[in-house]
């Protein structure tokens, strides 16, 4: 049965004015995401991946484009009209410590969202807090604790419990594991996977960790200076990375070698990410691209299909 996607992002752009200058944070990004699936957004700092997540949630307003959630165009909804929809869209942050009030117990923090949306009685909400804590692998006594008494991994589980408290359809995971130790990262990834299966959650997974994005995502978009340079099904994109920037990103990951004589040469890409205030002409990646030609310096590349759903924004792709 063909159904419409849970989320449609169409040609969305966001510009910030900073000290009289204009910064293009997100430029004409489009994607669709079906219920129960995961969209991975990757890119380096300043690529616009977090801004894009906030645009989808309407925590920021897009300057152009349309966001359709569950069949409804939410781009222009007023805060009041957005409110009932907020239950369906939640976010998990990178730093669970910073996203939790230090003066609120864990139980109160989880209950808070339900109270704001007038869900259930106090007793029902507290029962739900217990269920949620258990579901994310924490003991129910944690509800009496304050954030500073928990470890980073435990707090991130609380952040997940809080996000789930309203039975959302869409969860934006904004670098949810970046601040955690490796052994804890895997625990949280596994938990996110289980919860997705159990509750048919739809994720937008924002991360600079390409391997984790590849592991978790169905669809992936690679962002550079606010623009999607490559996007498509995760399997296809990682099997056949086509944009020079995607290739550079993948080459920059230091994998554990099989043996000491199979170590990676530490060879680096030239240059730095340019200032978003003054992006380069033509293809914004051209100053760092090993294959750049005159046309790349002068003309903005168009999005091209290189597979049935795999697209690349590069003059040289075919």
């Amino acid at each position: 049965m063909p159904s419409s996607p849970l989320l449609q992002v169409e040609e969305v752009s966001k510009r910030f004015r900073v000290q009289g200058r204009e910064l293009h944070a997100v430029e004409k990004v489009s994607f669709q995401l079906d219920a129960g699936k995961t969209m991975g957004l990757v890119g380096e700092s300043g690529s616009g991946k977090s801004t894009l997540g906030r645009l989808v949630l309407r925590l920021l307003d897009a300057n152009e484009g349309r966001i359709v959630f569950n069949g409804q165009d939410i781009t222009k909804l007023s805060p009041k009209q957005m409110r009932p929809l907020r239950r369906d869209m939640q976010i998990i942050f990178q730093d669970p410590q910073a996203s939790m009030s230090p003066r609120m117990t864990i139980g109160a923090a989880i209950e808070d969202a339900m109270a704001i949306h007038n869900i259930g009685t106090k007793a029902e909400r507290q029962k739900r807090v217990d269920e949620l804590l258990e579901r994310v692998g924490l003991s129910t006594v944690v509800k009496y604790a304050f954030p500073h008494e928990l470890s980073g991994g435990q707090l991130q589980r609380v952040g997940i419990a809080r996000a789930l408290s309203l039975n959302p359809k869409l969860v934006i995971c904004d670098e949810p594991i970046s601040a955690l130790d490796v052994s804890i990262q895997v625990q949280v990834i596994q938990l996110l996977q289980e919860l997705q299966k159990d509750f048919n959650l739809t994720y937008i997974f924002i991360s600079h960790n390409l391997a984790v994005v590849e592991y978790l995502s169905d669809q992936v978009a690679v962002l550079y200076l606010g623009e999607v340079v490559e996007q498509g099904p995760a399997e296809e994109l990682f099997a056949n990375p086509t944009h020079p920037y995607t290739q550079v990103l993948l080459q920059s990951i230091l994998k554990m070698p099989e043996d000491a004589d199979k170590r990676q040469a530490l060879t680096s890409i030239q240059g730095e990410i340019p200032s978003p205030f003054n992006p380069p002409s033509g293809c914004t990646f051209h100053p760092r691209c090993p294959f750049a030609t005159d046309v790349c310096r002068q003309k903005k590349p168009e999005r091209k299909l290189v597979g049935s759903q795999h697209s690349v924004t590069c003059h040289l792709a075919n």
């Binding site: 490796v182 052994s183 804890i184 391997a211 590849e214 554990m256």
Partner: peptide
């Protein structure tokens, strides 16, 4: 615990506890 590129199909086996 380290997830590397090209491991889409692997099973995770986290170290339990902290």
């Amino acid at each position: 615990s380290i997830i590397e590129i090209g491991q889409r199909d692997r099973q995770l086996s986290p170290i339990p506890g902290m």
